[in-house]
């Protein structure tokens, strides 16, 4: 089986400082990988390098494209990369307002992604927008409201609908449940798990919440100071951590 994403030796520097360094991994279709680590450990830098928002200083990010097989997205031309980010990739930001257009209606936000890949029939676009709003549990009568009139949890679900409407194969998520209260968080996690299973999505989730990765991620990568210190099966890394830093991280979680 070909990996969907093959990352080799990625490094990104901010001047002398290391953003992330020596990161390599393969991600297979249907796999969900979590990246954990404290603030400043380089996990968001890495995610942005993978998603094409930052250009890494070193290394390759090979993505299994639908037409040409594995292609390095770092050296790919900008239009090609943009096309991928509209069709095959999705990026769920921590703050929904970074991923949404706040002055466009909810339906418009979802429809825009469809129009970007060529959909033109207004009725069809509106129908699939409404369908997706339903799947993320936003009622159809809110389709014409702007995201500014939505709660934080609703905005986050709208962002997810906007991202998944084009049927991507790889979803990048940066703290998708950060800033949401726990009851909303639980519902969002359940929603994401269902979507991952039904659409056979692959996902890379950056978070500092170990409970979130335990429930969502198959595999885990632990980062510290820009380096990967431990990788493995999620429950194995959390229950039998090998590296000192991971042990510290796991033992520092407050028990409820």
């Amino acid at each position: 089986m070909t990996p969907l994403l093959q990352v080799t030796d990625i490094a990104k520097f901010y001047g002398h400082r290391i953003g992330c360094k020596d990161v390599s991994f393969d991600l297979y279709p249907g796999e969900v990988m979590g990246i954990v680590g404290e603030s400043g450990s380089g996990k968001s830098t890495l995610l942005n390098c993978l998603a094409g928002h930052l250009t890494p200083d070193q290394g390759q990010v090979n993505f299994d494209t639908r037409t040409d097989g594995l292609r390095d997205t770092v050296t790919m031309s900008e239009p090609e990369r943009r096309m991928l980010s509209r069709t095959d990739w999705a990026f769920v930001h921590q703050h929904a307002r970074d991923g949404l257009r706040m002055n466009v209606s909810a339906g418009g936000n979802v429809g825009e992604r469809l129009m970007a890949v060529g959909a033109r029939h207004y009725g069809d676009i509106r129908d699939s927008a409404t369908d997706w709003l339903g799947r993320v549990e936003i009622s159809a009568d809110r389709v014409d409201d702007r995201p500014t009139a939505f709660s934080g949890g609703m905005q986050q679900r709208l962002q997810i609908a906007r991202n998944l409407v084009t049927g991507p194969r790889l979803v990048f998520m940066d703290e998708p449940t950060g800033g949401l209260d726990v009851s909303v968080q639980a519902r969002l996690l359940d929603l994401l798990r269902g979507l991952v299973r039904e659409m056979n999505l692959s996902a890379i989730i950056v978070t500092h919440d170990l409970a979130v990765v335990r429930l969502l991620a198959d595999r885990l990568m632990v980062m510290k100071d820009g380096h990967v210190v431990e990788t493995g099966l999620t429950d194995q890394v959390l229950d039998d951590p090998q590296h000192g830093y991971t042990q510290l991280l796991v033992s520092s979680v407050l028990q409820v």
């Binding site: 429950d235 194995q236 039998d240």
Partner: peptide, 9 residues
């Protein structure tokens, strides 16, 4: 048992 399940290395 956990080693057999892959939960412990």
């Amino acid at each position: 048992m956990r080693m057999i399940y892959g939960n412990y290395l």
